[in-house]
Amino acid sequence: MTAPTDSALRRAAARFPTALWNDSADPAELARSIEFGAVGATCNPVIALAAVQAHIDVWRPRIQELANEFPAAGESELGWKVVEELSIEAARLLEPAFWESGGRNGRLSVQTDPRLHRDADALAAQAVRFSGLAKNIIVKIPATSVGLRAIEEATYRGVSINVTVSFTVAQAVAAAEAIERGLDRRAAEGLPEREFGSVVTIMGGRLDDWLKFWVQKNRILVDPGVLEWAGVAALKRAHRIFTERGYRSRVLSAAFRNHLQWSELQGGDLVVSPPFDWQLRINENDLDAEDRIEVPVDQRILDTLLELPEFRRAYEIDGMNAEEFDTFGATVRTLRQFLEADEQLDRVVRDILIPPV
């Protein structure tokens, strides 16, 4: 593999303001990703579950210790203590980038409990608590109708936000506006104004996944390869809108499905967050980054995508209202996956506390 000091990721990080974040809080992966130039990372139930399963020899005795320390705690509570410990350890690795950037980078994103997705007050309260785990914590709240209210309130209460469960330009704009309202409320009350480092994620690969399912379900034939550009097109448009409107948050690209979701976004003031294995592949193939954030998606590809009503909903600023965010296919699928990961983490803890016979 190419040496980290001369890797494709390192070269891109040196040339462009585009920040690299690692889409995992696994400490071993994050330490290597930092060598590639990563200045941020994320954790959610899916990522936490994978980290625990990958290092069960470490986490089995630790979970037993937590159970002894908190004898009345249930499986879910113990599972979330694992998420918190994993996040705190990862946050510590990112502290140098946090202080160097004045808080804009060096962030570790912690996911709010997906089981709270119907309760804005509970989401905001948990966000405040999570933000106190470390100075460089940034808290993930979904871009749903309920989540938008929580995003504004948590921002007002001093929390740095990473908007998640977000796949469309309309969601990204609505979330950025919620962050602006929260910051404006702080300013109106004379509360400290500073760089909060908030980001608004578009899970480009999950938008691609949903559109592929949607065209198959509706028996629509699309030229091969076209749907690989859907997430890229949404991300490029969102970045352009954020820049034009001067939002104080940045766009973040997540849920990678192809290397275009890295290479087509270089050059802009935004965040790209590939999983660690994608970082390895980018380095192994020595992809040379160019400044492509302002290069539009080929018009023939975009025209083909715009023939799909479901893509237009994702691409247009007013393609959906907040209530429609909740029923968008990618939203439903992702929320269910996060909830299922929560349940699987519960089962891992259960098997440690009450081993099967």
Rank of each mutant, 00 (worst) to 15 (best):
E177D: 13
R181A: 13
G182T: 04
L183Q: 09
D184V: 02
R185C: 00
R186N: 00
A188T: 06
A188E: 12
E189W: 03
E189S: 03
G190F: 11
P192T: 03
E193F: 01
G197H: 05
G197R: 05
G197M: 08
V199K: 02
V200P: 02
R206F: 10
R206Y: 11
L207W: 11
D208A: 05
D209H: 07
L211M: 11
K212E: 15
F213D: 14
V215C: 10
V215R: 07
N218V: 12
L221W: 02
V222C: 05
P224L: 10
V226P: 04
E228K: 06
E228P: 00
A230E: 08
G231R: 09
V232M: 06
V232Y: 01
V232E: 03
A234N: 10
A234K: 08
L235C: 13
K236M: 10
R237H: 13
R237E: 15
H239F: 04
R240A: 15
R240I: 00
R240T: 08
I241Y: 01
I241G: 01
I241S: 02
F242I: 01
T243K: 09
E244Y: 01
E244T: 05
R245M: 09
R245S: 07
R248Y: 02
R248K: 15
R248D: 11
S249L: 07
S249G: 06
R250P: 00
V251F: 01
V251R: 02
L252F: 01
A255E: 02
F256R: 05
R257M: 14
R257D: 12
H259N: 08
H259L: 12
L260W: 12
Q261M: 14
Q261F: 06
S263A: 15
E264S: 14
L265K: 09
L265R: 09
L265S: 11
L265W: 09
G267F: 07
G267A: 07
G267I: 07
G267Y: 03
